[in-house]
């Protein structure tokens, strides 16, 4: 049993499609925004997989660097989206 780039890409494809499905299917906009971090997670997995198996030229850990950027940006965008969508609570 081994890991190769195809397996990593399949997992990334599943995460991206699940995020797109969540964003399209949820009726509630604040729930649909939660699909964005899933898509970013899939992209991050693909970048980390390329850094691990196929980074022939350039900085070898560039994919890992971009995966870090994507994870932080996903959190920031989710906070921004939920902040715009609205907040309610006890006053």
């Amino acid at each position: 049993m081994t890991i190769n780039l195809v397996a990593v890409f399949f997992v990334a494809a599943g995460l991206i499609a699940a995020g797109a499905f969540a964003a399209a299917w949820r009726r509630d906009l604040t729930a649909a925004v939660a699909g964005v971090p899933l898509m970013f997670a899939g992209a991050g997995v693909a970048f980390a997989g390329v850094a691990r198996f196929a980074a022939a030229g350039g900085p070898q850990l560039f994919g890992q660097e971009f995966a870090v950027v994507l994870a932080i940006a996903a959190t920031a965008l989710l906070a921004m989206g939920l902040g715009i969508a609205g907040r309610e609570g006890p006053r």
Partner: peptide, 20 residues
């Protein structure tokens, strides 16, 4: 850490549902 933050944001009861 980032996805724990995302989970906290998604699960927070302070956000109102907004119908599309």
């Amino acid at each position: 850490v980032c996805y724990a933050g995302c989970a906290f944001l998604v699960a927070s009861p302070l956000y109102r549902p907004l119908e599309g």
